[in-house]
């Protein structure tokens, strides 16, 4: 069966600042149901890549398509299909959590949003905090509120930058469950994280960036094959070998793995 159309298609994406190249000539695609881990050392260009995909900053070169829409040419159509939760989401201090959800529902034109919002708040055990001001929330609660707001419009591309930061054990479990559920429902998910255990647990495919360049794109098994001597090597070994070690033996052509990392 032919691959379904990609949810995300990045072609020759480059982002530079004056003489500094943050990301160079990056191309990859993401298919429905795929959970992709975006990993790399600090300063590798992960956040820049996600910000450009989200339309927050413009690419210097290249094209990015979300759901078939060019992020630069058709930003509104592209953005309606995606959700981006940054590393440290800034909420509006003077609004309550529920007002945040109302805000996002209005901006993304979500009809009958309240039952959906309540369901999300229940999942993250935030119902009791729904009328609290954002400035009164803990770091973990802010993260939960931002995720609830991001998922309200049922995006087909979800990008999460360090999604577990500040979450309690229950929150971590819920977050993982929701990521899997959304992927099974057909959403494409990109997770940027330094927690390689999370990556190993959730993600079937891997994109490794180092100094703004694509080092590897494929599934985890292929990464082991390319960068580790043993097939049961940890992802940590793969990561260090990929980002610090010698160049790998060429891997066979990669085909992104479909849904169901489980």
């Amino acid at each position: 069966m032919p691959d379904p159309a990609p949810i995300l298609d990045v072609r020759g994406f480059t982002k530079s600042y004056h003489t500094t190249i943050a990301v160079a000539d990056l191309s990859f695609s993401l298919h429905p149901g795929e959970i992709l881990a975006l990993v790399g050392p600090n300063g590798a260009g992960k956040t820049t890549t996600m910000r450009c995909i989200a339309g927050v900053i413009p690419p210097t070169q290249g094209q990015i398509f979300v759901g078939g829409f060019d992020v630069r040419a058709k930003p509104v159509d592209a953005k309606k299909r995606l959700a981006y939760v940054p590393d440290d989401p800034h909420l509006f201090d003077a609004l309550t959590v529920r007002e945040h959800l109302a805000f996002f529902a209005g901006a993304y034109e979500v009809d009958a949003w309240e039952p959906k919002a309540d369901a999300l708040l229940d999942r993250f055990e935030m119902r009791d905090h729904a009328d609290k001001y954002a400035s009164d929330l803990s770091r973990g609660m802010r993260q939960k509120a931002a995720v609830c707001a991001a998922l309200l419009h049922n995006p087909t591309l979800i990008m999460l930058d360090e999604p577990l930061t500040g979450l309690d054990p229950r929150g971590i479990r819920t977050m993982k469950q929701i990521i899997r559920e959304r992927a099974n429902a057909g959403a494409g998910i990109i997770i940027s994280s330094h927690l390689l255990a999370l990556v190993e647990d959730l993600c079937a495919s891997l994109l490794i960036l180092s100094q703004g360049r694509l080092v590897f794109r494929g599934d985890v098994a292929q990464a082991r094959q390319a960068y580790a001597a043993q097939s049961d090597a940890s992802l940590e070994d793969v990561f260090f070998s990929a980002t610090e070690g010698p160049a790998p033996t060429p891997a066979p052509p990669t085909t992104p793995t479909q849904a169901g990392a489980e």
């Binding site: 201090d93 309550t96 529920r98 007002e99 109302a102 729904a130 609290k132 400035s135 009164d136």
Partner: peptide
Amino acid sequence: GKVKLTGQARSRRLVR
């Protein structure tokens, strides 16, 4: 411009 509001508030509908 950051405001430190604490406690609960009655969530209001946003003006449209």
